[in-house]
Measured scan of single mutants.
Amino acid sequence: KLPPGWEKRMSRSSGRVYYFNHITNASQWERPSGNSSSG
């Protein structure tokens, strides 16, 4: 399961899957890690 705020999306241009955070408006190709504590 993804960390809070993150969701899986697909890029229309490349067709690749990326991850988008609707809370911080951040996007990245790598899967966000939800196990590590923020610090």
Rank of each mutant, 00 (worst) to 15 (best):
K1N: 13
K1Q: 14
K1S: 12
K1T: 11
K1D: 15
K1E: 14
K1R: 13
K1A: 13
K1P: 14
K1M: 12
L2N: 01
L2V: 04
L2Q: 02
L2S: 02
L2A: 02
L2W: 02
L2T: 03
L2K: 09
L2M: 05
L2P: 15
P3V: 01
P3A: 04
P3G: 05
P3R: 02
P3S: 03
P3L: 04
P3N: 02
P3H: 02
P3M: 03
P3E: 04
P4E: 09
P4Q: 07
P4A: 09
P4F: 11
P4L: 08
P4V: 08
P4H: 09
P4M: 08
P4D: 09
G5H: 07
G5P: 07
G5V: 02
G5S: 03
G5T: 02
G5Q: 04
G5K: 02
G5D: 05
G5M: 04
G5E: 06
W6A: 00
W6I: 01
W6N: 00
W6F: 01
W6P: 00
W6R: 00
W6V: 01
E7P: 01
E7L: 07
E7N: 04
E7T: 08
E7G: 03
E7C: 08
E7V: 10
E7F: 04
E7M: 05
K8F: 06
K8M: 14
K8R: 12
K8W: 07
K8S: 07
K8A: 12
K8Y: 07
K8G: 04
K8T: 09
K8P: 07
K8E: 12
K8Q: 11
R9H: 07
R9G: 03
R9Y: 07
R9T: 03
R9F: 06
R9P: 00
R9S: 02
R9D: 02
R9K: 08
M10L: 15
M10H: 13
M10W: 15
M10G: 04
M10I: 15
M10K: 14
M10N: 09
M10V: 15
S11E: 14
S11V: 12
S11I: 14
S11T: 10
S11F: 08
S11R: 04
S11K: 06
S11G: 06
S11N: 08
S11A: 09
S11W: 08
R12M: 15
R12F: 12
R12A: 15
R12V: 15
R12K: 14
R12H: 15
R12S: 15
R12G: 13
S13T: 14
S13D: 13
S13A: 11
S13L: 11
S13M: 08
S13W: 09
S13V: 15
S13H: 14
S13Y: 13
S13F: 12
S13C: 15
S14T: 14
S14G: 08
S14Y: 07
S14Q: 08
S14D: 10
S14W: 06
S14N: 12
S14F: 07
S14L: 08
G15F: 04
G15Q: 07
G15A: 05
G15H: 07
G15V: 03
G15I: 02
G15W: 03
G15E: 04
G15D: 04
R16Q: 07
R16S: 04
R16H: 06
R16I: 06
R16D: 03
R16A: 06
R16F: 05
R16W: 05
R16N: 05
R16L: 07
R16Y: 05
V17L: 07
V17N: 04
V17S: 06
V17I: 13
V17T: 09
V17E: 09
V17R: 02
V17Q: 05
V17M: 08
Y18K: 00
Y18F: 09
Y18D: 00
Y18G: 00
Y18N: 00
Y19W: 06
Y19F: 07
Y19V: 00
Y19M: 00
Y19S: 00
Y19P: 01
Y19I: 00
Y19E: 00
F20D: 00
F20T: 02
F20E: 01
F20V: 05
F20W: 08
F20N: 02
F20Q: 01
F20Y: 14
N21K: 02
N21T: 01
N21H: 04
N21M: 03
N21I: 02
N21L: 03
N21F: 04
N21S: 04
N21Q: 02
N21G: 01
N21W: 00
H22P: 07
H22D: 04
H22C: 12
H22T: 15
H22Y: 14
H22W: 13
H22G: 05
H22I: 15
H22R: 14
H22Q: 09
I23G: 04
I23M: 08
I23E: 08
I23K: 06
I23V: 10
I23T: 07
I23Q: 08
T24Y: 04
T24D: 05
T24S: 06
T24Q: 03
T24L: 06
T24K: 02
T24P: 01
T24A: 03
T24R: 03
T24F: 05
N25L: 13
N25Y: 09
N25W: 09
N25T: 06
N25K: 15
N25D: 03
N25S: 08
N25E: 07
N25A: 08
N25I: 04
N25Q: 14
N25H: 14
A26N: 08
A26L: 14
A26S: 10
A26V: 15
A26W: 11
A26Q: 15
A26M: 14
A26K: 14
A26I: 14
A26G: 06
S27M: 15
S27E: 06
S27G: 04
S27K: 13
S27C: 15
S27A: 14
S27Y: 14
S27I: 15
S27L: 14
Q28F: 03
Q28G: 01
Q28A: 04
Q28Y: 03
Q28W: 04
Q28L: 03
Q28V: 05
Q28C: 07
Q28T: 06
Q28I: 05
Q28D: 03
Q28S: 08
W29T: 06
W29K: 05
W29H: 05
W29F: 08
W29M: 06
W29D: 05
W29V: 06
W29R: 06
W29S: 05
E30H: 09
E30K: 07
E30G: 06
E30L: 07
E30S: 08
E30F: 07
E30D: 09
E30I: 07
E30W: 08
R31Q: 06
R31Y: 11
R31A: 09
R31G: 03
R31K: 09
R31L: 09
R31V: 10
R31H: 13
P32H: 01
P32M: 00
P32A: 00
P32I: 01
P32Y: 01
P32C: 00
P32F: 01
P32W: 02
P32T: 01
P32N: 01
P32Q: 00
S33D: 13
S33R: 10
S33M: 11
S33V: 14
S33G: 11
S33T: 14
S33N: 11
S33L: 11
S33E: 12
S33Y: 10
S33W: 09
S33A: 11
S33Q: 13
G34E: 13
G34D: 13
G34F: 14
G34M: 12
N35P: 13
N35Y: 09
N35F: 10
N35M: 10
N35S: 13
S36A: 13
S36Q: 11
S36L: 12
S36E: 13
S36V: 13
S36I: 12
S36G: 11
S36W: 08
S36R: 06
S36H: 10
S36T: 13
S36M: 11
S37G: 10
S37R: 04
S37F: 10
S37E: 13
S37T: 11
S37Q: 13
S38E: 11
S38D: 12
S38W: 10
S38C: 15
S38N: 13
S38F: 10
S38I: 11
S38G: 10
S38A: 12
S38Y: 09
S38K: 07
G39N: 11
G39M: 11
G39F: 10
G39H: 10
G39I: 11
G39D: 12
G39Y: 09
G39R: 05
G39A: 13
